[in-house]
């Protein structure tokens, strides 16, 4: 038999066995992974809106409209109590120092930020990671206005100020961009 053909066949055989093994492993692990990822997003938003009894994703056309005008918003979930919408959970993404920062911002129907939760980040430990490690950071967003752009300051007091992390400017600015992206989406699409 032609040598190249034989070599090709052997390689193909090895690749086929490998693909088979991986397909099997995928069957087993994919559902577990999907569960965990769903837990991750619904778990976080349920913590922000404890009074809600149901969560539903925002209608696709509206989400696409938002995404077309906004680089940060990835997903929007409606928090419902009965038939009434009591707020929105916006999943936003921006680029930090060590990669993507994905956060969940909760905005209620009165235009106030009621929740801020970093879902995923790989910022430098003890520096940028303070957006997660330092509870004062997340707290500085609660109750703030979701109808104007927010700015980081050393001692946040006004409606549009949140805590700046000294020495972690890149991470702070990334979060600022993402939060303001959520604010934009709320003001232009969700509050009407």
């Amino acid at each position: 038999m032609n040598e190249t053909l034989k070599l090709g066949l052997i390689l193909f055989l090895v690749a086929a066995v490998s693909a088979g093994v991986l397909a099997f492993a995928n069957e087993v692990t994919a559902p577990i992974i999907a569960e965990i990822e769903k837990q991750g997003s619904f778990g976080a938003i349920a913590e922000i809106f404890p009074e809600a009894d149901d969560f539903q994703p925002l209608e696709e056309e509206k989400l696409n409209e938002i995404k077309a005008s906004n680089n940060f918003v990835q997903e929007v979930t409606k928090a419902l109590k009965g038939e009434e919408i009591i707020g929105y959970g916006l999943k936003v993404k921006s680029v930090g120092y060590g990669g993507d920062i994905i956060s969940l911002i909760g905005i209620n129907t009165e235009g106030r930020i009621v929740g801020f939760n970093v879902l995923q980040m790989s910022e430098t430990p003890a520096v940028g990671s303070r957006i997660v490690d330092d509870p004062a950071f997340a707290e500085s967003f609660i109750g703030k206005s979701a109808t104007e752009k927010l700015v980081p300051v050393e001692n946040p007091s006004a409606d549009n100020e949140f805590l700046a992390l000294s020495g972690a400017t890149v991470s702070t600015t990334a979060v600022q961009a993402a939060v303001n992206g959520a604010v934009d989406a709320y003001v232009n699409y969700l509050s009407k």
Binding site: L7, I10, L11, S18, L22, A25, N26, T29, I32
Partner: peptide
Amino acid sequence: TPEKIRIPIFIVVIATFVTLVEMLMKAF
């Protein structure tokens, strides 16, 4: 393992185990 294609075969074997580790870590 034929000598001429040993490197691709090594790569497939290694990549298979790496993907398995990836899946296990993602799930657990």
